[in-house]
Structure formats: C-alpha cells, structure tokens
Design a binder for these strands. Sequence first.
DNA 1: AGTAATTAGTCAGGGCACTGATTATTTCAG
DNA 2: CTGAAATAATCAGTGCCCTGACTAATTACT
Lengths: 154, 154
Amino acid sequence: MAAVDLTTHPGHLARRLQQAHYLLWNTMVSEEITSPQFAVLNALVAEPGLDQRTVGERVGLDRSTIAEVISRLGRRGLLDKVRDPQDGRRFLLRLTDEGVRTHRKLTVRTARMNQVFLAPLSADEQTLFFDLIRRVSDAAEGLRNPVEPLAVRS
Amino acid sequence: MAAVDLTTHPGHLARRLQQAHYLLWNTMVSEEITSPQFAVLNALVAEPGLDQRTVGERVGLDRSTIAEVISRLGRRGLLDKVRDPQDGRRFLLRLTDEGVRTHRKLTVRTARMNQVFLAPLSADEQTLFFDLIRRVSDAAEGLRNPVEPLAVRS
DNA sequence: AGTAATTAGTCAGGGCACTGATTATTTCAG
DNA sequence: CTGAAATAATCAGTGCCCTGACTAATTACT
C-alpha cells in the first residue's frame, strides 16, 4: 500500500545511470581499464607528478579507494610511484609510456562511447543534463564539507 | 596535453552523483539500511511474495547482487525466504512485520532526503532531471538487450 | 518416458566505495 | 629542541556490482 515510485528517486536513478554506463563502457571502451582508472590516467596526463591524495581529490575518490585503483594501475605497469624526496609521507605518481599510450587509445574510444550514450538527447538537452547533474552533485558535496565557520582568531 | 575534461563525461558525472547521494543517505536516512536494500523492501511492499529474480528485475540488480542484498535483509530479520512449493527452483520473499515497519520509517526519511538533494533545482528542472536521466538509462538498457531479431522459424 | 534446453539460485573472483583505526612523517608551539 | 597536532598512506571491515562457471529443478521435444 505504502510503496513508493522509485523512478522519482534521484538515488535510484543515479544508480541505474551508472549501471547503464558501466555496461556500455565494458563493451565499447575496455574490459581491462575501468572508468575510474581512466579518470586517474587522465588526471596524471594533465598534471604529472601529483601525489596520491591530490589525484583522488581531482577525480573524486577517497583515500582508500584511490590507493586500490593506483595499485592496480601500477601492477599493470601504467604508472610509477616514487617517494617524494621533499616530503617522505607522499608518493609522487607519473604515467609510464605504456600509461600514456593507453590513455590516448581510450580517449578516442571514450568519446565514441559518450556519443552513443548521449544519443537519446539533443545537443541542448545534453548541456542541460550535465548542468543539472553537476549542480545537484556540487550542492550535496557542499553539504558534506560545511564551510569552515570562519574561526575567530582570538 | 591530451587530457580530457571529465565534467562533460556522463559516466564520471553519474559516479559523482551517486557518491553524493550515498553520503546524504548515510547522514539523513540510515547507516544500517542502504538505498538498494530500501529498494528491495519497497518492491516487496508493492508485491509481496515475489521471487528473488523478479525482485532483482524490479529494482535493477543482477542475480548475484540481489542474492547478497536479500541475504543481508534476511540476516537482519526484515524478510522471509521460502521455497516455492509450485516451483522448487524459486524462493518466495515476504517482508516480516519488522521489515514493514522499517520500510515505513525509511519512506518518510527518504522523502525528506530527496527534497534536500534536489533543492538546488526548481520544480521544472527536477522533472527534467528525472526525464533526461531516465531516457539515457533506458536507451542504454535497450542497447544491452537487443530486440530479439524476430527469429524466422524455418 | 527420457533426454535436452531453460531457468533460479549459488559461488568464486575482480573492482569500486566508504568508515574507523593505525603507522610514519612533517609541522607547529612552547 | 621537544612534545603535540596535522597529514599521507595503509589496513581491516562492510556493502554494492558485474561476469562466468556451476548445481538443481522444471519444461519442452521427441
């Protein structure tokens, strides 16, 4: 009696959207490299030598998850990890040649996949789609890290 | 040089959206029951006595995942699982009283959470948001199960 | 009736995602 | 300069998500 219509629940829709994407990625882009892994490669192409934590921040992965993802990419020989001589807590990350090649190859396929994925929407709708999702995500992210209460320095 | 802007990649946005939702759910709805678990409870409120596979279909979870989710709900005493006497392969699922109570409680909180989550969008934009995401997901889902090619019976 | 194909569910294995606790290093304060 | 706070990374634990291989039960085809 009291059942609810999940198609008006953003969380449920978000999950379905991600599943749909996962499937398409698997068939059109790669079965080896996942979408989050590609995001890490991409971040390191843009800014080589980043440390692990910062990469996680760039692509939206927490400290634990980014460690796993990086470990997998390292095992596949797509990136190198070296202690920062300036700060012994950090590891600096840099793509190998193989990592750069992989990124380049997947960039092309990803673009094709995105076209297919978004094909049901007109160009205007696609823009709107990005905008709406981004606004909702950013707002929720903001709730997470409440703006520092402007601490009053005694 | 060849780095790409992930904010125009639907997969990346979908992942971020889901993370944002996960966080909000955890703080505003429940730390025990997850959103997919609630979806299962909801499906069984709507249609008590469904079998496992069909529940999975209703909420969009594959056979393996639905088995895990149901096992957790069973462990928590929120549902019962009995062999179908008509078909010994199936398990029929039914919420316990505790399961019904939990569903009712979470329904209220979920509605509140959805309001907060969608607050950055106007009413019209919310409708559009649902519509765009649903269209993209459904289309991708369609690619997955290509329409049976109308097999020509010799 | 008896074998073949289908179907429901399980299991093993890989990957993503979060929290809370721990370790090592650096920085800050007195 | 030394003890305390902060920071980068790891680890253990839980849960979601998929695939491919397998088992058990049912249905369909001779």
